[in-house]
Design a binder for these strands. Structure first.
Lengths: 152, 152
DNA sequence: GGTGAAAGAATGGAAGC
DNA sequence: GCTTCCATTCTTTCACC
């Protein structure tokens, strides 16, 4: 898959991963290629499934969702992961679900307005899911970094 | 902070969080407001610090970075977190760093090309950081969900 | 597989309501 | 604080290289 991509593609990715709203004309100018080429390369990378979309980076604390929590989930039986994941995805405070190997079976990230809201979600929406044996939580005190890998 | 935002702002956020490249004219049409208003609201939300940027969603496996790993880090002394975080941020495979409460002191997310690459980063770049006592890793077998909270 | 130009569309101010 | 208007800028296609 990677051999379909070259250095120009990676430089386009680097610029747009930094700010997805950068006009293609500006990307083209920076890389000294034509806007048409940027457009073509972007379509190629979307078609390849490398670029799956674009989104806003949001600081939830600014709308009074003050808590970010990571949760490591133990299942009663590891094979139950599929059903549990489906149930987790229905909890709207959950923004990220990973099936993992290691101490935990599933790893999730969620947001909550405050500790009361968090406890509600935890007790009423998470612990009640069938197949979950136990949950360990890690409350984020501070996010220090969110970025992409370097493309090259 | 939240009282500066209304339902229209949240609907704009919802649309653009889904696809940050949606033209403002299209957002305006969906919400039956003028493009100028979308522009104004967006600038307000950027100025408030709610929107911190825009980015691409990427599937790293498509460029042969096959591993996503979460790592829970124990420090020799919890007060060392600042220095350790600075050092972690210099490891380019690390894309996310959170200072957390709970069993671990710091929680990070990283990507690697394969298990050899991962072991190199783990042994040479992470375990060598002064102040880190131990690390527990969770290799993501599958990402099932990445989304935003529902705004309202 | 890239370029550059051109038609159509979007952006981002300003003036008025 | 929203809207409409408009000059400027961007997108996206396509004939050509």
């Amino acid at each position: 898959m990677k051999n379909k991509l070259d250095h120009v593609d990676f430089r386009i990715l680097t610029i747009l991963a930094e700010d997805a709203q950068t006009p293609y004309t500006e990307v083209a100018k920076k890389l000294i290629i034509s806007p048409g080429t940027v457009h073509l390369r972007m379509r190629k990378m979307c078609d390849l499934g490398l670029i799956t979309g674009t989104t806003l980076n949001l600081d939830y604390s600014k709308i009074d969702w003050k808590l970010t929590v990571f949760l490591g989930i133990y299942l009663t039986k590891s094979t139950l992961y599929k059903d549990v994941i489906v149930n987790l995805m229905e909890v709207k405070e959950v923004v990220n679900v990973h099936h993992v190997t290691g101490k935990y079976d599933i790893f999730i990230k969620m947001h909550a307005k405050d500790s009361i809201h968090y406890r509600e979600v935890y007790q009423d929406s998470l612990l009640t899911i069938e197949g979950i044996k136990a949950v360990e939580s890690f409350i984020s005190v501070q996010e220090n970094l969110t970025r992409h890998i370097e493309f090259n």
